[in-house]
Design a protein around this nucleic acid. Sequence first.
RNA 1: GGCCCCAUGGACUAGUGGUUAGGUCACCACCCUUUCAAGGUGGUAGCACGGGUUCAAAUCCCGUUGGGGUCACCA
Length: 520
Amino acid sequence: MQTTPGQRVRTRFAPSPTGYLHVGGLRTALYNYLYARKMNGDFIVRIEDTDQARKVEGADKSLMNTLAMTGIVADESFVHGGNFGPYVQSERLGIYQQFCQQLLDQKNAYYCFSTADELEENRKLQMKQGLQPKYNRKWLPESMGGSMPETEIKKKLDDGVPYVVRMKVPDYISIMFDDIVRGPVEFDSATVDDQVLMKSDGFPTYHFASVIDDHLMEISHVIRGEEWLSSMPKHLLLYEFFNWEPPKAAHLPLLLNPDRSKLSKRQGDVAVEDFIKKGYSPEAIVNFVALLGWNEGDGCEREVYSLDELEQTFSLERVGKAGAVFNVEKLGWIEKQYIKARPQEEIIRAITPLLQAELEKKSTDMNVDRIASEEYLAQVVELMRERVNFELEMITFSSYFFFDPEKYDEKAVQKRWVTDTNDVLREFIGVLDETDDFSADNLEATLKDFAKRKGKKPAFLIHPMRILTSGVGFGPSLYHMLEVFGKETVLRRLRNGIDKVKVQKRNDPGLNSRGVVVRD
RNA sequence: GGCCCCAUGGACUAGUGGUUAGGUCACCACCCUUUCAAGGUGGUAGCACGGGUUCAAAUCCCGUUGGGGUCACCA
């Protein structure tokens, strides 16, 4: 049996298939992946499905899918294969049993027949006395320094009474190790419980299975969340029992809720899929999560990193120690950076299906072939890319590029309409009707010239024009927007809209301070 | 409660004995501007506290406080 893992860097992400990929899990996976890439090593995904009760059907596949979306690919896994399989713990039961027997033979582990009720009672008692709850070693055999006669144990075994196998933690020894991110850490074995290794259903516990698999799979670096730090002594003891060299450990700072507790559901989304569903792109999520607890250092002030760039610059040594609050606002900012930089074709490819779906839901007065064309979408993209929070908003948030407005933002109307607005507007519609050049430049010149002739400021027309043609009081440059809409659409929208927005006499009930009322 | 970890503005962080404590998000103001964004300029705001060590401490040591994690036949 090999006792030292190879020199080659091999990292692993070991999720349990109990649900969706958590952003904290994503970061753990990412750091493992990045470190392996940086060191020209291997990144392994291992499914830890030793808890049959919590196992969710299909969760393993969905985990891999989400991972794939973010660009993190495993060198070895249950889908990618590899020389160290199987990569699913429930398919490795025989292996664990074999090693468990070895520990039993070496008297590093013992059978325990205590029932759940007994343990619970014991725990309560100890808690009451202010002690750390620990197993009372009732079934520790005489041969191992306990008080249970071997005959008693044999009898239970022969009777087929369900049991559990526990490791025997040595009394009062000091367990020390060097954590890559935390430095030297020391535990007293007296504070370590006789951990269950094999459950009564024949499945190993996490602690046992992961130690064995990490060794067998020649994992060189265990990179995981800080919540595992306090179980390190158990794992180290196990390596000791087997006379194996433990992998290097790096315990990552936790991702936190805004109240600084461990990031959890309850306080918002935590599943990577939820963020993707909301419109965040995998690149932005990866970028953001990478920066939570790591930075390039050396005065580097970069904030935007592609996966490739992270692979080049990542280092475990520069991972911080303190927990980091998952701040969605900054994620949003990063998302915008990506939208600004993303190639036009890519965005068009992404939003086209969304547009198709919208077009199936409702009809439009515009020319469908035209508004669904690449040329048209390209113009929309360039007008909107700096104004949207998410790619999908180019369709949803900017529906006026595809559908005539059904209503007009009342507040905007109230703010922009005065008594003679509609009169001037009607006259301007006439001017537009005779204009064939609907380029932004010409529209601007035409509007400004007309306004001047009427003794009005351009804004007098600009705002009402925007509201009538788009329905809302904000958006891209009016002239460029109208150019994209095209003459036919612009005139139709103006004519339809002007009759719906009417100026009323001063004492009409329901009148606002400017004497405007909106009618459907 | 025991054990372990952590500690720079509201958030993410740079900083490893000598800096006017730097950057990003958010926030505020101004500029640009038809609006909304984007962009530009400027600004508010920080080394948890107390002791040491040192000529000198955000940086090293100790303590306090605060926060977190963990104490399952869950991972």
